[in-house]
Simulated assay, not measured.
Amino acid sequence: MVVGGRNVEIPDHFRVYVSQKLARLERFDPTIYRFDVELEHEPNRRQKKSCQRVEITARGKGPVVRAEACGDSFYASFESVTAKLESRLRRVKDRRRIHRGSKTPVSVAEATAPLALPDADRAEETDGYDVGDEHLPGRIVRTKVHPAEPMTVDDALYEMELVGHDFFLFHDKETDRPSVVYRRHAFDYGLIRLE
């Protein structure tokens, strides 16, 4: 478990609280080897009710599962984000189970084995924040680089739902080009392909 903060000091009693809460989530996926917990404080006084943001990323053998929440305190935000993460981990566990009678479908592990999902350790991430810097608009403050294995649109939608983002950039297996799936307003999805 890695607990970090952006311009926030993290007390020891909060670290103990986080480790106790996250120990309960390991029952959903025993292959989880690391939880990344990031705390951030929004200094804008007008956003007082949602100024404490907590983000948790669970890394294991399968896909990366991520959730974030905002609240008026780090404890309230942490309770909300653990509920979201528990729901997503439960969904992943439930998806692996067989739901039909005598005909056994292909398990998720067998179906995704040839895809060779990106290794969480190979992903590079750099933050552009320094302690003394002000946040200026129009600046790139974070860059993430991930290895891109070709995948189908259904696999990309599955990955997008697990991470909890509104869009997902992927290498389309059909067209052999970069594509984006995104969430629309009426609980449906969109697809953008480059020509």
Rank of each mutant, 00 (worst) to 15 (best):
M1Y: 00
G4N: 14
G4Q: 13
G4E: 07
R6A: 02
P11R: 05
P11W: 03
D12E: 09
R15P: 05
S19I: 10
R24T: 02
E26L: 13
R27C: 00
Y33V: 03
R34I: 07
F35M: 01
D36G: 09
H41C: 07
R45A: 00
Q47V: 11
E55T: 13
T57P: 09
A58M: 06
A69S: 13
A69K: 03
D72Q: 03
S73V: 04
S73I: 02
F74I: 03
Y75K: 11
Y75P: 02
A76R: 07
S77R: 03
F78R: 02
S80R: 15
A83M: 03
E86H: 09
R91I: 01
V92F: 05
V92W: 14
R95D: 08
R97V: 08
R97I: 11
G101S: 11
V106I: 15
V106W: 02
V106T: 15
S107C: 00
A109V: 04
A111L: 13
A113V: 06
L115V: 10
A116D: 04
P118Q: 10
A120E: 08
D121L: 11
D121S: 15
A123I: 13
T126R: 13
D130P: 03
V131P: 10
H135A: 15
L136I: 15
G138S: 08
R139E: 09
I140W: 01
R142A: 09
T143Y: 12
K144R: 14
A148T: 01
M151I: 12
M151C: 14
D155R: 13
A156H: 06
L157S: 06
D166C: 08
H171S: 05
E174F: 02
R184S: 01
D188Q: 07
L191I: 05
